[in-house]
Design a protein around this nucleic acid. Sequence first.
DNA 1: ATATCGATACATGTATACAAAATGGCACCC
DNA 2: GGGTGCCATTTTGTATACATGTATCGATAT
Lengths: 237, 237
Amino acid sequence: MADIGAHGGGRRVKNGQESLGASPGMTLAESLRQKLEGAIAAGHLEPGSRLDEQEIAQRFGVSRTPVREAFRLMAANNLVELRGRLGATVRSIKAQALIEMFQVMAELEGLCARLAARRVSQAWGAEIGEIHQRLVAAGETGDIDVFYDINQEFHEAIYEASRNTFLADQTRKLRNQVAAYRRRVTRMPNRIADTVREHEAIMQAILAHDPERAHSAMRDHVNLLGDNLLDFLAAFE
Amino acid sequence: MADIGAHGGGRRVKNGQESLGASPGMTLAESLRQKLEGAIAAGHLEPGSRLDEQEIAQRFGVSRTPVREAFRLMAANNLVELRGRLGATVRSIKAQALIEMFQVMAELEGLCARLAARRVSQAWGAEIGEIHQRLVAAGETGDIDVFYDINQEFHEAIYEASRNTFLADQTRKLRNQVAAYRRRVTRMPNRIADTVREHEAIMQAILAHDPERAHSAMRDHVNLLGDNLLDFLAAFE
DNA sequence: ATATCGATACATGTATACAAAATGGCACCC
DNA sequence: GGGTGCCATTTTGTATACATGTATCGATAT
C-alpha cells in the first residue's frame, strides 16, 4: 500500500483497474453509480448478487467512501438493496413483485400515452413514425439487441410527448428497475411481431388524438409484456 | 475537541445535542434520515434551505459520514437535492412540478382505489368506517393537526387495501414528497368539509365494489386537493 | 465609485483508521 | 454422528485527516 500517495487526491489508475470513463466535474460516487447501474441493466451484475465494497473500490481504484455513497444513491433508484450491516445486494425482484410493478408501469405508461394523445403536434408524428420504421426494419433483420434499443426509443419518445417531466422520470425509473428482467424476454417466439403490432395500435391512437384508446392500447401492451415475462420466468423455476 | 474519544465507536451525547430517539440495531445514517425526513414533512426545514453537513453532524453528535449517507438516502426519495460541491438543499418544488406530481399522484391513488374496490373484504369496511368517523369528529372539533393525521390514515388504509405493496410504497413516497406543501393547504376555508364529502364518495364506491367509480372518485379528490394547493401557493407569489 | 482580480476561508469530496457486528469454521458436548 | 457454542476472519459502520473546489471579502485599477 506504500506506493499509493499519502492521503486524499492523488488518485491514479494502476494496471488491471477499470476506468470510470471520463467524469469531468462529476464526483466519483456519481460516476460509479452510472457505471454500476449500466452493468445491472445490461445483466452483467445478476440480481441477488452481493456488492462487495472493497472489491469494487479496488476494481475502480478508489476508496470505499465513494463506493458506499454510490450504493446509497442506487438504493434510491431501487436498484440496490441495503440490509443494515448485512451488506448491499443487487435488488432481486420476486415474481409477485414483478406482477405488482408491471401493474403500476402499465398505468404510468398508459398515462403517458393518454397525455401524449392530447398534446402531440403533427411534427411529432413524423418522428415517431421514423422510429417505428427502424423498429420494423430491426425486426425483419432479427437483430435482437438493436430491436431492444429501438423499442426503448419508442417508449422514450412517448414519455417525452406526455410533456410531464415528472411522469417521464418516474416511468423511466420504473422501466430501469425491471430492465434486467425485461431484456431476457425479447427473445421469446412471437414477441417481436407482437410488439410491432401493438406499437402500431398505440401510435395510431395517439396520432388520432384519442386519449382513451391510447391509454388502453399502451396499458395492454405493457401488461402483455408482463405476462410474457412471467411465463418466461416460470419456465425457469 | 479533545474531550471526544479518540476514534470510532465511543459516541456520547453532550448537552445541547439532539438525540436520535433510540435506534436499536439501526444505523446512524438511517436514524438521521428518519429524523430529517420528519422535519421536512413537518415543515421545520423549509424547501430550498441549505443542509449543512457539519452543523447537522454537530447537532446530533455524530460525524459527517453518516450525515452524508443520510443525504444520499434522502436524495433517493427526492426530498433532497445534491448539487455536486455546491451542497445539499431541501428540495424545492416549483408550481409546474407540483402540477405534474399531482397528475401522477391522482393516477396512482386512483389505481389504489380501483384495486381496493376489487379486493376488499367486508371486515375492512368496519376499519375504514372507524377511521372516517374519527376524521368527521376531528373536523367538527376543528383540530387541524389531528385532522391531517387521520386524513393520512384514511389514504394509507386504501394503499394497503390495494394489496399491491409496490404500488403502496410508490404512492406513499410521492405523498411524502409533497407533504411539506400539502400541510399548508389543510387550513383553507372549505377544505375540511370537502375532504369529508369526497372521502365518503370514495368509501362508498370501494365498499360497493365499483372499481371505476372508486378510481374516478379518488382521482377527483386528489386533483381537487392539487387545485386548492396551487390556488394557495398562487396567493403567495 | 464600481468592477475585476486575487488571496483567504470554508464546505464538500475522498482517503484512511478504528470499532463493532456478522459470517464461517472449529472444537466440544450431547 | 449431529448439533451447539465459541473464536477468528471478514465486512460494514463510523470517525477523522487531507485535498480540492467554491464563495467571500478586500485591494487595486479604471
